[in-house]
């Protein structure tokens, strides 16, 4: 990184640390922080989409749809989520490969499950074996993202369903009395107001999502936990930057990173809660009105 880093063995003190903390592997670790942020940025809207679909389905008048929605919400409850994080990526991976196998190799006669092995025809491999390393990483990340979206979607669905039902029934009845169709009443009356009710639950969910990101490590993705273990382990003189076992410091840094993230989120959500309460006929809205007057 810096010009004086050419011969790390000759360095001492602050210069050594400056070079050590900007070595190639450390830059890779800083990038992996980006992976965590990317997961958060993609998983939150994906989970919201799953959750909204689930909540609408669970409230649907069509019985099969309602059953599917309720089943989805109930499925994730009562089972440790780690089980889902381990199960969903493998299951989806094998499912996709099996479908591609059926589609691409129709005349393949040997069974796919042979004892302890899962074998599909070579062209059906996902991603293709010729794909660059980047594609493999992206595929693993996409599977992890799907697992996060599925699990957190179920919890978001439950929160959103509660929020929809929390909007006072009288308001919907008033909207209907004005001649709005149920869809219009939902869009114009329920949808703008439900967020105030949903926010505490969603805040909680976001905090849990932030704290669930280290599970990427379980899914074999090179995230910050991976790098902390990798870089923190003791390095002999063979390495450019020899040092004893520093893993405890790396994990202390990770703890500090997550504490900052949750602390910052708490403040953002507190402001958002105030913003959503403005002008609402609730205790929080009333407090804001009094405060301004």
């Amino acid at each position: 990184m810096f010009s004086f880093c050419a011969d790390p063995k000759s360095l001492e003190g602050a210069a050594w640390f400056a070079c050590y903390l900007t070595s190639g592997t450390h830059l890779a670790m800083y990038w992996s922080v980006g992976t965590v942020m990317l997961l958060l940025a993609l998983a939150a809207p994906a989970a919201m989409a799953f959750g909204f679909a689930g909540a609408l389905a669970a409230r649907s008048r069509a019985a099969p749809l309602a059953l599917a929605g309720r089943g989805y919400i109930a499925m994730v409850r009562g089972v440790p989520d780690v089980v889902f994080f381990l199960f969903v990526p493998i299951a989806v991976d094998q499912g996709v490969e099996y479908l591609r196998h059926l589609w691409l190799c129709p005349d393949w006669t040997e069974p796919v499950r042979r004892g302890a092995d899962f074998v599909v025809c070579p062209v059906a491999k996902m991603p293709p074996s010729t794909a660059p390393r980047f594609a493999h990483d992206a595929w693993a990340f996409a599977l992890a993202l799907l697992a996060f979206a599925l699990v957190f979607g179920a919890f978001a669905a439950n929160t959103l369903r509660g929020a929809i039902e929390a909007v006072p029934r009288a308001q919907v009845e008033t909207a209907e009395a004005y001649g709005m169709t149920p869809a219009q009443a939902f869009r114009r009356v329920v949808l703008p107001q439900m967020w105030g009710y949903a926010l505490p639950g969603l805040t909680n969910l976001w905090m849990i999502l932030v704290k669930a990101t280290p599970l990427l490590f379980l899914l074999g993705i090179q995230d910050i936990v991976y790098w902390a273990r990798e870089l923190g382990g003791s390095k002999t003189q063979v390495y450019a930057y020899p040092h004893p076992d520093w893993r405890v410091w790396y994990f202390a840094a990770l703890l500090a990173f997550y504490l900052t993230l949750t602390w910052g989120s708490e403040r953002v959500f507190a402001r958002l809660a105030d913003r959503l309460a403005r002008g609402q006929a609730t205790a929080a809205g009333e407090r804001l009105r009094r405060g301004r007057a």
């Binding site: 932030v210 280290p214 936990v225 990770l254 997550y258 504490l259 949750t262």
Partner: peptide, 8 residues
């Protein structure tokens, strides 16, 4: 902070 990191 995540329990996962606390364990590590």
């Amino acid at each position: 902070s995540p329990l996962f990191i606390q364990f590590f």
